[in-house]
Nucleic acid binder design. Structure first.
Lengths: 349, 349
DNA sequence: TTGTAGGCGTTATCAG
DNA sequence: CTGATAACGCCTACAA
């Protein structure tokens, strides 16, 4: 047919009006005589023109209608993480007034595809991202793109959606201690982007670049400063299972595991049950997040439930305000203790 | 400081080179003397220029590096649906060679925010969308944007990723029949965008605009043509629970329910158990999808397991091929029967 | 209500 | 390896 796609100029010419008139017909910014509108529309359909090119429009208007959501780690594990999906859900609700769509971005340093820097976004939400993107974050802000961070320190002037990670983790560790447990193990998420699963030889909290991991671990260490630390690379049941196997192989066997997420905890519980270790009679496990734990019924995880949906919604709302120029600030949320039956009194030595 | 953001032209001037040279320094399309590169980079950082504006770049290059994924129904229920998240995961894997990011889009007709038509996308995957977007789909194709459809009929020349919905649902219905069940109920997802949950007074398959719903129902009706139909509005455990209550209130009580998704099935099982109806002794339930069903342990759903991740990956790969100009065609997948213990012989009348 | 003009910021092309 | 030129397609003051 045509070598080149029809543009609004072509349509205007075909309809015998000026480009601006044709433009207005599509954008609806101004009143147009019904007759002219009809002519323009007719010309458009005759030429197979289906509306303004979004790329050109967004260059001209300075807005793309796209919000970037930067996810830590791989995209695939993000989708498989119930907490992340719930937060995403909340974000989409919070940005509703913007009429914007959500662009999923990773925070890989290897970055070849679109990233915070190369994607046409009007704003961004950073979700559980490691610190290594701090520099690109500065660039984005320098560009005037509003940013909100969920559970992370993004520096001066970046609104943060917080969670009482440290206090909450301390709380549940104290609960465990109250049950009499002394030989305990901490099971954490990744320390940084390059972590491999395994036992942490030493503890240097400041070297942990993933804020959530660090804060929760800090809370747990306040109660059990000398307990060994097993770090997974992500929040996955399978990783928890592996952790559980490693823990149960210890001699003497610990009586409790304090996991940083429910998925890890579920994996640990399964590993225990598969090994013939009773939960909670022989071994107690705590989680964190308060997702609906799958696959350990009739067990119910003892955990700290966090308001994930609320966090997401708040992030979306704050970002929307920022984009619309309304002054705002971050919000902090608190977790709630929820007792299940994966914890019990420490077995007598 | 500056009222206006620095542009690449400013940088070029500051560095004493031409705009094109400065551009090349950032894009890396051509070799540049190390000396000039340094000068440009220095000028850039002096001016606070952090790289090309994505909007302008995408206008000029004709590509945005963004793939749209259109989800049927509300975004929030999409995130809560395990099948959808797994498919998304697969898509992100399949489009990896494109180095593109994923833009989440809805197929709302209410159309105020970004949509297929107004988003700067290089391609799109339609996921379980109702037919009402057929027209906008034509527009997108007319614009030359490649599209792939997962489980839906998008018309001529649109590659489709298919699933044997009808045959698979027939298969599991036959299994149920083989167990001797005669009083059976079909539980479906939404018929169309405006469906409200409840009993379907009559059956007009052709009026069902959601392809998956229609195809699965067709398969089930081939085995139980006269069974009543309860239609939910989505694939949610809560909706299944409501369906279960409605079904168990029937007199005489049916002996089996054939649900279109695992989540609906889980809800039905729970409703039965809560009502003191034994599963499967008194009542059998089948699902569809093969997700890890949560919350009915020690029950395991009898279901048809579909390769959700493979479907997503295939969609991504086909789209990538399309965008790169390689000729391709759709792919069809098959579901696998998986026997659980939510089904048993029909109770004797 | 419609037309004119100019630029949004970049990059492909081609010549030097 | 670098520079000049010309779009990419649209929108919005502003003027008529």
């Amino acid at each position: 047919m045509s070598a080149r796609r029809a543009t609004i100029a072509d349509v205007a010419r075909e309809a015998g009006v000026s480009p601006s008139t044709a433009s207005v017909v599509f954008s609806g910014k101004t009143q147009v005589t019904d007759a002219t509108r009809q002519r323009v529309l007719a010309a458009a359909s005759a030429l197979g023109y289906t509306g303004p090119d979004p790329r050109a429009a967004s260059l001209r208007r300075g807005r793309s209608g796209i919000i970037g959501v930067v996810l830590g780690g791989r995209l695939r594990s993000a989708f498989l993480d119930p907490v992340t999906t719930v937060v995403l859900d909340g974000i989409s609700e919070g940005i509703a007034p913007l009429d914007a769509a959500i662009l999923l971005l990773r925070d890989d340093a290897t970055e070849t595809g679109p990233s915070l820097m190369t994607a046409p976004i009007d704003g961004a939400v950073l979700l559980g991202c490691s610190a290594h993107m701090r520099s690109s974050l500065d660039d984005v802000r320098g560009r005037g793109i509003p940013v909100v961070v969920i559970e992370g320190d993004a520096g001066e002037g970046v609104p943060q959606i917080g969670l009482d990670n440290e206090a909450a983790q301390r709380h549940i560790a104290e609960y465990t201690k109250g049950l009499g447990h002394e030989r305990v193990v901490h099971v954490t998420m990744a320390f940084d982007a390059s972590t491999r699963a395994g036992w942490a030889p030493s503890v240097d909290l400041d070297a942990i670049t993933v804020d959530v991991t660090r804060d929760r671990l800090r809370g747990a260490l306040e109660v059990y400063p000398d307990a060994p630390i097993y770090h997974a690379t992500g929040s996955l049941i399978d990783e928890g299972y592996a952790a559980g196997q490693a823990i149960l192989a210890l001699d003497p066997r610990p009586t409790a595991a304090i996991a940083q997420t429910d998925l890890l905890a579920v994996g640990i519980v399964r590993a225990a049950l598969d090994a013939g270790v009773r939960v909670p009679e022989d071994f107690s496990v705590t989680g964190f997040d308060g997702i609906r734990a799958d696959g350990i019924a009739p067990h119910r995880l003892t955990t700290m439930a966090q308001p994930a949906a609320d966090k997401g919604r708040a992030a979306g709302e704050v970002l929307a305000a920022l984009i619309q120029g309304t002054p705002t600030s971050g919000v902090d949320f608190a977790s709630r203790f929820r007792e299940g039956n994966t914890t019990g009194p420490a077995p007598r030595a």
